[in-house]
């Protein structure tokens, strides 16, 4: 049984039919990437999984359990965390308070402290800036904070929405290395990206989304070789 199984979901914004029957699955331990152009429905897919946007049809199962009836804050306590597009750090809260918010649902003090240490190990910058208000961080630091904050919930499934957006190339590489490291430490990852090249280099498998529909799904290696993917998303002729 896959950890996450999305089956034929339809999601609307008023009368905009943003997802037209999207299906995908993520196995425990994998990095799966969802690539596609602007407006394809990547963010909407993640918002549907995390409960921020209700689907009108289809099913989303986590370890076999249907998530449709749960509110977003209830889905978090099922060990699914999301790093939203554009980071969504709480600009007026300090770095430490942002990380505390990540651990909002947790009661195990010891575990939270251990995870905080882990986050500071992955992102030493956050430790230096712990007292600083998050709105004053650079874009890269805010992305680190957004990921660190999601890790504070100790998720088994991490949803990442365009973590490379707006970052300098050197930072992009380090963010993707971090994603791999987090995965190797046992977190399953569903990664949404427009930077298809980087996403396909770290992922096990991938799906290609076009105007609300999955048009391709394969191993990351095969997708990299696929002519259509090369043309449309890797900028090759």
């Amino acid at each position: 049984m896959p950890m996450l199984e999305v089956h034929n979901i339809h999601t609307y914004y008023d009368n905009i039919h943003a997802l037209k029957g999207v299906s995908l699955s993520v196995e425990q331990g994998e990095i799966v990437t969802l690539i596609g152009g602007n407006g394809a429905g990547k963010t909407t897919t993640l918002r549907s999984i995390s409960g921020l946007r209700k689907t009108s049809r289809g099913s989303i199962r986590l370890n076999g359990e249907e998530l449709g009836a749960y509110k977003p804050h209830e889905i978090v306590s099922k060990s699914v965390s999301m790093v939203p597009e554009g980071r969504g750090v709480f600009a007026r809260l300090s770095v430490a308070e942002n990380l505390d918010m990540g651990a909002y649902i947790r009661r195990d003090r010891k575990g939270v402290e251990a995870d905080l240490e882990r986050v500071f190990e992955i992102f030493p910058r956050l430790k230096e800036r712990r007292k600083q208000v998050a709105g004053t961080l650079s874009g890269g630091e805010q992305q680190m904070l957004a990921i660190g904050r999601a890790l504070m919930a100790h998720p088994t499934l991490l949803l990442l929405d365009e973590p490379s957006m707006g970052l300098a190339p050197i930072l992009v590489e380090s963010i993707f290395e971090t994603i791999q490291q987090i995965n190797q430490e046992g977190t399953t990852i569903l990664l949404v990206e427009q930077n298809a090249l980087m996403a396909l280099s770290v992922a096990n498998r991938g799906y290609v989304l076009q105007t609300g529909e999955i048009v391709l799904s394969d191993t990351a290696a095969n997708l990299k070789q696929n002519e259509m993917v090369q043309k449309a998303y890797l900028g090759m002729e």
């Binding site: 921020l52 509110k71 999301m82 969504g88 709480f90 990540g102 649902i105 919930a153």
Partner: peptide, 14 residues
């Protein structure tokens, strides 16, 4: 304070 700043993201924190 988190809800005041961003409701959907606060919900994502649980």
């Amino acid at each position: 304070r988190a809800v005041a700043e961003n409701k959907p993201v606060a919900a994502l924190m649980g």
